[in-house]
């Protein structure tokens, strides 16, 4: 039985290294990002972070155009605390993370969202800050 446990533990260990067994992803694949308007006054930004990668909460930034459209405080999930001897304490996101952005679009028009992010791979590399841009039409009104 001990041998079976050892073999099972080895398999689990191998599966726990999702990044290590493959080439590193580029940032667009590691941190897939999408955005949509889920109402006239809310944008939902979704980050699908690949296994073995993570995003820094403090490096998520958002801007909205045009000037007449206003962006409220992002509703960020709590995330997990990561302690790093050389980097200090950070809050990070893994897997799927959804951020809601309250907006006020004065004339309910199309808005352009820029979403900045920065993250790393557990294997020990970090990606430069990346900017994603989304043009989001106003949701059609129910009649």
């Amino acid at each position: 039985m001990r041998e079976r446990n050892l073999a099972a533990a080895a398999v689990l260990f191998a599966l726990a290294l999702p990044v290590a067994g493959q080439d590193l992803l580029d940032a667009s694949q590691a941190f897939r990002t999408s955005a949509r308007r889920i109402g006239a006054d809310v944008i939902e930004v979704r980050y699908d972070t690949a296994p073995g990668y993570y995003l820094y909460r403090d490096r998520l930034e958002f801007k909205l155009q045009p000037e007449s459209a206003r962006l409220g405080a992002p509703k960020l999930p709590p995330g997990k605390v990561k302690e790093d001897e050389f980097f200090g304490r950070s809050v990070i996101y893994r897997n799927r993370t959804i951020v809601q952005l309250p907006i006020t679009a004065m004339d309910n028009s199309t808005v352009t969202l820029t979403a900045d992010l920065q993250g790393c791979a557990d294997i020990g590399v970090c990606y430069p800050p990346v900017r994603r841009t989304f043009v989001l039409a106003a949701p059609s009104k129910a009649r």
């Binding site: 080895a10 290590a20 294997i123």
Partner: peptide, 18 residues
């Protein structure tokens, strides 16, 4: 035991490859 050792060795190799 051989399978376990082989998987551990391969995993360690993957982990350090990059």
């Amino acid at each position: 035991v051989c399978v376990a050792v082989a998987i551990l060795a391969l995993s360690a190799g993957y982990a350090t490859h990059l």
